[in-house]
């Protein structure tokens, strides 16, 4: 017993990173969450980690690194040792490039599996004259410079980019709109309710409390089908006849160069976790959407996300 402990200590010193590991995982797995404790990214990852712990048979340590809007945490994931013992939460990251904060690409990471997806929506305050997406888009098209849209977080990010993309396709001069950045969905919703801005981009769960209070109203959700829990919110297809699928996605990924067998093991664990009733129930209760994608599909999603973001950011006039 004592000898085996000693041997494993020595092996740890020797460093076995990067090589194939049949018995993975032999020790706790760390998941870096580039967001503060209590946010959407943190909550969803913890719900997943609770299942992963049982499936992998090892404790999962969650490390919150939300500084710099997530750049610090994403950098830590990118620079981690690719042995499978440090992975992290990936989410839409391409927006950092236009503002010069960081330049992440799919090549920096090993995509493992996606486990959550939530659609963006366009909201107005209760005092707004707009009742549906179509009249709102027509009004913005006629005079884009006279409208203020709150991005929830920093602009060029998860919620506003899909909405701006939809507007771009509608023929609106998106660069003329006043996009207002903020410190998150909640402060933005106060701005919207207080009449400080005309529109806001956010997910429906984030706005649900103020929606039920009658202070804000969703015009449409950027999802092909109605969102569970919000059956009465119109989809873009229902109002402007164009199906749009835009919003956030959350996935487990690691640094580039992880051993294939470890990735396969983690992918299988995430797949199993997302199918469990406990996971589905917890996610539904907290209003988060379940969306599983395997590593290959996730990589396609990441590449598509980079291309879409670049197109919209370009139209918005970033990087000029």
């Amino acid at each position: 017993m004592r000898i085996s402990v000693l041997a494993s200590v020595l092996m740890a010193f020797a460093g076995l990173a990067g090589t194939a590991q049949a018995d993975y995982p032999e020790r706790p797995v760390t998941i870096i969450v580039p967001a503060a404790a209590g946010g959407g990214g943190d909550t969803t990852t913890r719900i997943l980690a609770r299942e992963l712990k049982d499936i992998l048979g090892q404790p999962i340590t969650i490390v919150n690194q939300g500084q710099g809007g997530g750049v610090v945490g994403l950098t830590a994931i990118k620079n981690a040792t690719p042995d499978g013992y440090t992975v992290g939460l990936l989410f839409p990251y391409a927006g950092y490039k236009a503002t010069g904060q960081a330049d992440f690409s799919a090549k920096d990471f090993t995509p493992i599996a996606n486990f959550n997806g939530d659609s963006s929506s366009l909201l107005v305050g209760s005092g707004s004259r707009f009742k549906d997406l179509k009249t709102a888009l027509e009004a913005i098209k006629a005079a884009p410079g006279s409208f203020k849209v709150h991005c929830s977080g920093g602009c060029g990010s998860v919620w506003d980019i899909p909405v701006a993309g939809m507007m771009l396709d509608y023929g609106i001069d998106v660069a003329a709109i006043k996009w207002v950045p903020g410190q998150g969905a909640a402060p933005g919703l106060i701005e919207l309710a207080a009449g400080g801005v005309d529109f806001q981009t956010a997910s429906l769960p984030e706005a649900s409390a103020l929606m039920s209070a009658g202070r804000v109203r969703p015009l449409a959700v950027l999802s092909p089908e109605p969102v569970p829990g919000f059956p009465n919110v119109a989809t873009t297809a229902q109002t402007i006849g164009v199906a749009v699928d835009g919003g956030t996605w959350r996935a487990i990924g690691g640094p580039a160069g992880m051993p294939a067998d470890v990735v396969a093991k983690l992918d299988a664990a995430v797949a199993k976790a997302t199918q469990s009733t406990a996971y589905k129930d917890a996610m539904a209760k907290a209003n988060f959407g379940v969306k599983y994608l395997n590593g290959k599909q996730l990589e396609e999603l990441m590449l598509r996300h980079e291309k879409d973001t670049a197109r919209v950011m370009d139209a918005l006039g970033y990087g000029k």
Binding site: G39, G40, T43, S208, A209, L210, S212, K285, A286
Partner: peptide, 12 residues
């Protein structure tokens, strides 16, 4: 986030 997680959704 704990309240949401428990289906005890805040709101009026």
């Amino acid at each position: 986030s704990v309240m949401f997680l428990k289906g005890l959704n805040p709101g009026p």
